[in-house]
Design a binder for these strands. Structure first.
Lengths: 236, 236
DNA sequence: ACAAGACGTGACCCATCGGTCACGCGTGTT
DNA sequence: AACACGCGTGACCGATGGGTCACGTCTTGT
């Protein structure tokens, strides 16, 4: 597991500063691993320090806020950062001429989220699992709520354009975006729940690739379940 | 907060047995409150015992498995029990003649879940928040996965009928049910996340009543987002 | 009325863990 | 080469909380 967030090391930085940066990264990397494996409450600062191959004191030099600071930093930089980057690479750069374009753009976006999830499962499970727990603390709740809210806003923006162009039904865009993100999240959580099933029960989500799962969700979301209108699904 | 799950006290039981039952209930009730307020890790057995107005030792007499046993019992009896009862009262008794029937039945079901959620927020947050954390332990993961799986199966069954009748597109029913439950869950989680928002940001989900939220989700799910087919939404 | 046992009790035990701090090594400076 | 200081270090501390157990009380059966 490794970051793909940090900006390329800036050559204008002194050696000392670069070393500091590298250590910070190593520590966050280790924290990510431990948090991912054990969850927030299950993780211990000792184990993080050990995995980072530093003394616990050193860790507190770099992150005086301790466990919480590590977690929140990780969350904002890595998890939310990843999601925004997926968004940048898909929805944010899309332009719509037809309803099929909208559908395809959101499908690509959702697929991107799933791929990102596959690649960085631990940090996302961290998000899914412990983010919600943080809601119990009002300060953290505000922090998380704000991050989520900002993200939803960016997901909603292209929808507004599509609605203005008459390509999508005039539903309120923010609730739709909210629902879409909730769906993705709920799907991933529920999927994880059935990952290690007892006996030989058939998995309820038999999608082999993120692409299949994404087009399934997109199909439901954009075309609806009903047979009546027999939507001629626009090939991307 | 109080149970609405326990079967009416059986008169065939001796006084001793009825007392035991009542105490169990009081303990579970207290545990539910504390877990709901503090989360699984945040809750302490002492506080549960105190709120139940019993000694800690007594609590261990009734639940030798301690904290875990309390939590798992609670989860299965209360949370999953509630959901099954909602399902019994809605989907399980519905019969479909038209596509509108299907749509209405699932809308009622989703609304039922939302209403239940409003009424029993703590236990459901317990489910949302800490259920996922339990996945880290393989044994518990099997337990939760199985419960969820069984529930999904029941949600999927009416869909099969609707598909067989040609009312719903021939999508695989279990993944659809899986997705629907994931959506509801994701919606509720995301909604909770924005419940205590900083500043005066507009809430992304402005639905005042469970009914509105449910018909919104149903509309997206059944009619799709696209404007093209202009689905004539069947009034229930 | 007395004995016996069932059951509630909370003080106690000990493991765990987040966080601290006095020490000393190594680096860079004079 | 000697000195000084930044910084890494891990032993240590205090709090917390899950789980136990010897004791007392209250019911029950004789």
């Amino acid at each position: 597991m490794s970051f793909d967030t940090a900006p390329p090391p800036d050559d204008t930085l002194g050696r000392r500063d670069r070393e500091r940066l590298a250590r910070r990264r190593a520590m966050l990397d280790a924290a990510l691993g431990v948090f991912g494996d054990k969850g927030f409450d299950g993780a211990t600062v000792d184990e993080i320090a050990e995995r980072a191959e530093f003394g616990k004191g050193t860790l507190y030099n770099y992150f005086p806020g301790g466990k919480d600071e590590l977690y929140l930093t990780l969350f904002e930089d890595v998890v939310v950062g990843n999601l925004h980057r997926v968004l940048d690479a898909t929805l944010a750069t899309a332009s719509f001429a037809t309803a099929g374009d909208v559908r395809a753009a959101y499908c690509t976006f959702v697929e991107g989220v799933f791929v990102n999830f596959e690649t960085h499962r631990p940090q996302h499970m961290l998000f899914m699992r412990d983010g919600e727990r943080m809601m119990l603390d009002p300060d953290k709740a505000a922090f998380f709520g704000d991050l989520f809210d900002r993200f939803v806003e960016r997901v909603a923006a292209p929808l507004d354009a599509a609605i203005a162009a008459g390509l999508v039904r005039p539903l309120p865009s923010r609730p739709v975006a909210h629902l879409l993100m909730g769906t993705v999240r709920g799907y991933l959580i529920a999927d994880d729940e059935t990952r290690c099933l007892p006996k030989g029960r058939p998995k309820p989500s038999p999608f082999a690739t993120p692409g299949e799962a994404a087009s399934f969700i997109t199909s439901v979301f954009f075309d609806g379940l009903l047979a009546q209108p027999a939507v001629p699904a626009d090939p991307a």
